[in-house]
Amino acid sequence: MDVPSIITEITSTRQGNAPKYDEGHVALALITIKENQPIGRISLMKKVGLKEASMKTLIRRMKELGLVETDKIGGTVLTEKGESILDQILKRVAVKQVTLKSIGWDSYGILLRGGESLLRQHGVLELRDEVIKQGAERVLIAVFENGKIEIPPKTDDMAMGNLLQEISEAFKEAKEGDMAIFITPQDLRLALKVSVKILENVNVA
């Protein structure tokens, strides 16, 4: 199963009951386990921001799919499959806190490898609306093309000089054809949710 299929399975409604977590919680749980393994359920619950019943459901579903192993004494660890799924996500997207002083935003920035193709396919307005649909309040989209940063639909280098510099400094690792999405509020779970939803719509080598 690919990343979107696995995340969909973990967040799916079963027997009429929808889990009280989303794609962002799943990605955050994988990252948190990776950084703290072995980790106990209570600690994981607090770091991911879920109640105990929801955390139990999430761990059980990840275990069913072979992403984690649990031990009553040691806690939860990622399996080789879990490591692979997380690596696939992190190879495609980079997420970090970014302050865009020129426009007064404390945001999370999402760098999508090869994301320019998604922008061409859907257009900036449709893509922005989809990100807002996931819970973002404000969205700024930029692409790295022709050796510079563009903010569609039109980039005014004179008026946007400071903003373009801030975007460049935020993602120094960006390459030609990458796309950056900046969102508020500054919420890691939300940024990860947006990242996973975007990955459902784009194939990146």
Rank of each mutant, 00 (worst) to 15 (best):
M1G: 11
T8F: 08
E9A: 15
T11S: 12
Q15T: 06
Q15D: 15
G16L: 12
N17A: 12
N17I: 15
P19K: 10
K20A: 15
Y21I: 03
Y21K: 03
V26L: 05
V26T: 05
A27C: 07
I31K: 09
I31S: 07
T32E: 11
N36H: 13
N36P: 01
G40K: 09
G49S: 08
L50D: 07
K51F: 12
A53N: 14
A53T: 15
L58D: 07
R60L: 13
R61F: 11
M62E: 06
K63H: 13
K63Y: 10
G66I: 10
V68L: 05
T70D: 06
T70R: 08
G75C: 08
T79M: 10
K81E: 11
K81Q: 10
I85Y: 10
L86S: 09
Q88T: 12
Q88D: 13
I89P: 00
I89G: 04
L90F: 03
L90D: 04
K91F: 01
T99Q: 11
G104N: 15
G104Y: 13
G109I: 08
L112E: 05
G114L: 04
E116M: 04
L118D: 07
L119I: 07
Q121N: 09
V124F: 06
E126F: 12
R128V: 13
D129E: 15
V131L: 09
Q134E: 15
Q134L: 14
R138P: 00
V143W: 02
I149K: 01
P152F: 09
T155F: 07
M158P: 00
G161P: 03
Q165V: 06
S168A: 10
S168R: 13
F171L: 02
G177M: 02
G177P: 00
I181A: 03
I183V: 13
T184A: 01
P185Q: 05
Q186R: 12
R189K: 15
K193G: 05
S195K: 00
V196K: 07
V196P: 11
I198C: 05
I198G: 01
I198Y: 04
L199W: 08
E200S: 14
V202W: 05
N203V: 15
A205W: 02
A205T: 01
